[in-house]
């Protein structure tokens, strides 16, 4: 290329650059105005809602005082019914354990059909992803209310509600893990004449196993937290005991139940951190 041609090309690039900037400037200004407008609207909605919902400052003061006196009345914790409370806590753990295993088993099977890189058919891929999105879009408590209405009080509706909602998330995160794995490994298996099942079991599973385990641990933590409040709508576990104590104004017992919940969640979090370290070591 001679010098003239180079100069011509460079000047072309430069003028193109200016043209892009000129075009981009009004665009940026427009975006800025839109964002400023959105912020003003957000503040206005805040003020309007304070008015609309009668945000009562006097009640805020008296309520805080009431809360403090209640906190004082709660002390000391009453552990007289400890047997009942601990059994309910155990039931919460069992609900979580059953729900997580059910959801992981189902998500494990479904995720291979919901990962774009290995799903046998585009239609199946969308079906699985859509199903998962719907399952997790409906909140756990709504699922629990539905199942309690359908099959009555007790741990069973709680297990199903948790399992279904977790399934929605687990299918998504499992399938995402599969999509993120190194595609070249699968290419090698396909090139050797491996079938779809063989590619999945010999290639995908060993590559994503630790990711699946880590996600399961994380979800166990989340599910346990949900399981403690499921009792509120009558779906079994320690939440039911807490609601019962509060309704009967057994504040000292409610404090004891709260302490048990806290201890249980803390212990499980410690355990899952420990397991996570072990999983990372095997990776």
């Amino acid at each position: 290329m001679n010098a003239d041609a180079v100069r011509e090309k460079l000047s072309g690039v430069a003028s193109a650059g200016i043209a892009v900037k000129k075009a981009a400037a009004p665009e940026r200004l427009k975006n800025g105005r839109f964002l400023a407008g959105a912020m003003v609207a957000g503040v206005l909605l805040f003020i309007f809602s304070l008015q609309q919902l009668h945000f009562d400052y006097a009640r805020l003061g008296s309520g805080t005082l009431e809360l403090l006196t209640m906190a004082v009345k709660m002390w000391p914790p009453n552990a007289a019914d400890w047997r009942l409370v601990l059994l309910a806590a155990a039931e919460t753990l069992q609900i979580t354990w059953l729900a997580i295993l059910l959801s992981v088993a189902m998500a494990f099977g479904l995720s291979f059909f919901g990962a774009a890189n290995i799903s046998p058919h585009r239609g199946i891929f969308w079906l699985v992803r859509g199903f998962a999105a719907l399952m997790r879009a409906i909140p756990v408590l709504v699922w629990a209310i539905i199942f309690v209405a359908a099959m009555g009080l007790g741990p069973l509706p709680g297990i199903l509600a948790l399992a279904i909602h977790s399934l929605g998330m687990m299918v998504k995160v499992f399938a995402d893990s599969i999509e993120e794995m190194d595609q070249r490994l699968l290419e090698a298996l396909r090139a050797s004449g491996a079938s779809w099942l063989q590619v999945v079991v010999r290639g995908v599973v060993p590559s994503v196993a630790t990711y699946f385990l880590s996600w399961t641990l994380l979800r166990f933590d989340i599910d346990l937290r949900y399981a403690t409040i499921l009792g509120v709508v009558g779906a079994g576990g320690i939440g039911w005991q807490l609601i019962r104590a509060m309704r009967m104004y057994e504040l000292n017992e409610a404090l004891f139940i709260t302490i048990v919940i806290f201890a249980m969640l803390y212990a499980v979090e410690m355990l899952s951190n420990y397991l996570k370290k072990k999983i990372i070591k095997t990776a």
Binding site: D182, R184, L185, E187, A188, R190, A191, S192, G193, A194, S195, R202, G203, P206, S207, A209, A283
Partner: peptide
């Protein structure tokens, strides 16, 4: 599948399953 098994392939990035 039957044709592919008679053609071995070797890759730039080896493409082994690292964890097995």
């Amino acid at each position: 599948r039957l044709l592919r098994r008679e053609m071995g392939m070797i890759f730039q990035s080896f493409n082994l399953i690292p964890r097995v």
